[in-house]
């Protein structure tokens, strides 16, 4: 039985089709979810894709957080539903307080798109168990507001609990504190990542196939987790 993975479309979502493609290539069935519909249609995991939900107005992710579908997702995440927020999805997860900290304007003030090396710091999450800790992967990064910030206590806590999931290596593209590219919640089922693994799933269009691991991870996780 193929796993069903939901991909939410908010007004202004852009990489939703790409996330759905990545889910499909990983071997699961993508299920498109609509921001205004609180129903999750029995999906076993959810991806919040990249883009500019609600035009990034007010603050990135600040409005999307109040979408009807997010209320359901926040509840379900508390119950262990794997949730991956990519870029704008990461911002939404922070705004929804599923993850600590915030994503702010890139330090150099420019949108930046490049192929970025990451080091996987934690392979213990629902979305990274297909990797080895310490493994380096090449994933496109593209954002204008990807600078991860949090107070020192929070950063220390993230580090101490092994909740920094990935770090930028070979250059920090946006000024994120401690080079943080991805973090997780204490349970490891909710992951926010600034770079775009869904753009590294095909040799034809991506810089590598390294992004696929995030999507196969959740399938592994689901097999190991009795529904």
């Amino acid at each position: 039985m193929t796993a069903r993975v939901g991909v939410v479309t908010f007004p202004g979502s852009l990489d939703d089709g790409d996330a759905a493609r990545a889910v499909r290539i990983a071997g699961a069935e993508p299920v498109r979810l609509w921001h205004g519909d609180p129903e999750l249609y029995g999906v076993e995991a959810v991806v919040l894709p990249g883009g500019f939900s609600y035009g990034d107005y007010l603050r990135c992710g600040a409005i999307a957080r109040f979408a009807p579908v997010m209320e359901t997702i926040v509840d379900a995440a508390g119950g262990g539903l794997p949730v991956l927020g990519i870029c704008n999805g990461f911002q939404i997860l922070c705004e929804a307080h599923l993850l600590p900290g915030a994503l702010t304007r890139n330090q150099h003030l420019h949108f930046r798109n490049r192929d970025q090396m990451l080091r996987i710091e934690s392979a213990g999450t629902a979305w990274t168990n297909a990797f080895q800790a310490g493994q380096q992967v090449l994933i496109p990064v593209k954002n204008g507001e990807g600078c991860y910030v949090a107070d020192r206590a929070t950063l220390d806590e993230l580090e101490g609990e092994g909740r920094v999931v990935a770090r930028y290596v070979g250059g920090n593209p946006n000024g994120s504190m401690r080079d943080i590219a991805a973090i997780t919640n204490p349970a490891g089922n909710v992951v926010g990542i600034m770079p775009h693994p869904e753009h590294a799933v095909e040799a034809l269009t991506g810089p590598s196939l390294d992004g696929l691991g995030f999507f196969t991870s959740v399938l592994k996780h689901l097999v190991g987790t009795p529904a």
């Binding site: 890139n106 330090q107 020192r152 580090e159 920094v164 250059g171 920090n172 504190m177 401690r178």
Partner: peptide, 18 residues
Amino acid sequence: PAGPDAGDTERPAAPDKR
């Protein structure tokens, strides 16, 4: 990681420049 030398006013790292 978790180096204590960042001080209380930890600031975002400067991004690399190209």
